[in-house]
Amino acid sequence: MSGTAEVRQGGGRDRDPDGRARNARPRDGLGRPLPYGRDGVERQPEGLVRSPEETVVEAQALLDGGKPFHAHEVFEDAWKAGPEGERALWRGLAQLAVGLTHAARGNVTGGARLLRRGAAALEEWASGTGQARPYGMRLAELGSWARELAEAVEQEDTTISATDWAPRLRGPGA
Rank of each mutant, 00 (worst) to 15 (best):
L48H: 10
A61P: 02
K67S: 12
R38N: 09
A104E: 04
A150F: 07
A126V: 01
Q44N: 05
G85E: 15
G173K: 08
R170L: 09
S2G: 15
W79P: 00
S127A: 14
R113A: 12
R8F: 03
E76Q: 04
D157P: 00
E58D: 13
D18R: 15
G110K: 06
T129N: 03
G128A: 12
T163K: 15
R50H: 07
D16E: 08
R91P: 05
G173I: 05
G111N: 02
E6W: 13
D64E: 14
Y135F: 14
L62F: 02
H70I: 04
R43D: 14
R133G: 02
A120N: 13
G85L: 10
R170G: 09
E148C: 03
Q60H: 02
D77F: 01
G19D: 10
D77E: 02
L142N: 01
V41S: 11
S161Q: 11
T101I: 00
Q44P: 00
D157N: 11
T109G: 05
D14G: 15
G47L: 03
L93I: 08
A94L: 01
K80W: 06
A120R: 14
P83N: 12
W79T: 00
D164V: 10
E156V: 05
T4M: 11
G11Q: 08
R168P: 02
G128S: 09
D14C: 08
I160E: 07
V98L: 01
A71D: 00
A21C: 04
L139E: 06
D164C: 05
H102E: 07
N107A: 04
G37I: 13
V74G: 05
D18G: 10
S161P: 08
L89Y: 02
P35I: 01
A21K: 08
G136C: 08
W79C: 03
L93H: 08
L93T: 06
A126N: 05
E156T: 10
R38E: 15
G66K: 04
E6M: 14
V98N: 00
G171Q: 13
H72Y: 02
G11D: 09
L63Y: 03
G40M: 04
L149I: 09
E6V: 15
A81C: 06
A119K: 07
A78D: 02
S144I: 11
K67I: 03
E148L: 11
D16K: 03
T163E: 15
L34K: 09
R117H: 12
V57P: 02
G3L: 11
Q9V: 12
G40I: 01
E123M: 10
A121L: 05
A146K: 01
V153M: 08
S127G: 09
T101N: 01
P83T: 13
T129L: 05
N107G: 03
E124Q: 14
P167D: 07
E86K: 10
M1S: 14
R27F: 06
T129P: 00
P83S: 13
N23G: 12
E154N: 07
G118Q: 06
L114S: 00
E141V: 11
P17T: 09
Q131M: 12
G143V: 04
E156H: 07
H70D: 13
K67R: 15
T55A: 12
N23K: 08
A94S: 00
V49A: 14
L34S: 11
G130E: 03
G65V: 07
L100H: 00
E6G: 13
G40A: 04
V108T: 13
A166D: 04
R15S: 05
V7H: 10
G47V: 08
T55L: 01
